[in-house]
């Protein structure tokens, strides 16, 4: 099934991640791990769990960058990264087994762990580093957009959102259908100039990043003028005749 859907999926589900409010708390990363380790992709195995060189499977990882130079001129940006469910995902087409596929219904890119031979080629084909190899199980795993949560009939409707989105305390993650121009994610993308990371690769991510808003160090508002003019004026005189009642 590594051929891509013949027609563009009717729904294009993905995330809009707001770099303006992400505080880098890793809640999305650990809640993702928690949901998915017991879900259809589970376990998200950890190796050397309590020893040196600990590492494991994570579908979502949070980076921190410094941008724009030293001191107050620059800024710090937290950058969570998980699969972007690309529209042109070579990670799917390179897969020799059909384990990797893009769902024709909603565009979610998944791995069928029963077919995967663990050749890792898909991870080589992903520029975003979004594929996660489970070295103990010998198969490739990845962000499923919580496909076993967002459609799960055993959960109440309101809980059918990806784990990372539900967890995010600063509401920096939004889930929805990019094919629907009226969805929150589409609107946010339009309003805030949502963009593709590494667009030059041509993978056409479904998910988008919303850029940090420009800092507002701002010019002084009018009140400064008052400061200047009153500087040095007769010390407390201004308060002497103020008659205010309690």
């Amino acid at each position: 099934m590594t051929s891509l859907p013949a027609t563009r999926p009717e729904k294009r589900l993905g995330l809009a991640i707001d770099l303006d409010t992400c505080v880098g708390c890793h809640a999305c990363a650990t809640n993702c791990k928690e949901w998915n380790t017991g879900g259809i992709s589970g376990p998200l195995t950890d190796v050397n769990a309590y020893a040196a060189e600990q590492h494991g499977v994570w579908f979502n990882r949070v980076f921190t960058y410094e941008v724009g130079g030293e001191g107050e001129a620059g800024r710090t940006v937290h950058f969570p990264k998980n699969c972007l469910h690309c529209e042109n995902p070579a990670c799917v087409t390179v897969c020799p087994t059909g384990a990797s596929y893009k769902r024709s219904e909603d565009g979610i890119v998944l791995v069928d762990h029963d077919k995967c031979i663990g050749c890792k080629l898909c991870s080589w084909a992903c520029p975003y580093g979004a594929r996660e190899y489970d070295e103990v199980q010998g198969v490739m795993k990845k962000c499923t957009l919580c496909v076993d949560k967002i459609y799960n009939q055993n959960l109440p409707e309101e809980d059918r959102v990806p784990a990372c989105v539900a967890a995010c305390p600063s509401k920096a993650r939004h889930f929805g259908d990019f094919a629907d121009p009226n969805s929150t994610v589409s609107k946010l993308t339009a309003e805030r100039g949502g963009y593709d990371p590494m667009p030059e690769k041509g993978y056409r991510p479904t998910s988008k990043y919303l850029p940090p808003r420009p800092g507002r160090r701002g010019a002084a508002p009018a009140a400064t003028a008052a400061t200047a003019s009153l500087e040095g004026a007769g010390r407390f005189l201004k308060w002497v005749d103020r008659i205010l009642t309690r």
């Binding site: 880098g24 990363a29 590492h55 494991g56 990882r61 980076f63 410094e66 724009g68």
Partner: peptide
């Protein structure tokens, strides 16, 4: 700059990688 889309704000440098020890990607790639 192009990867993060933050190039518009100036030079981008990594401050913190997601995990302090090497992960699968770092071992492999």
């Amino acid at each position: 700059g192009t990867a993060t889309g933050l190039g518009r704000f100036g030079a981008v440098r990594l401050l913190e990688q997601p995990h302090t020890e090497a992960n699968f990607l770092m071992h492999e790639m």
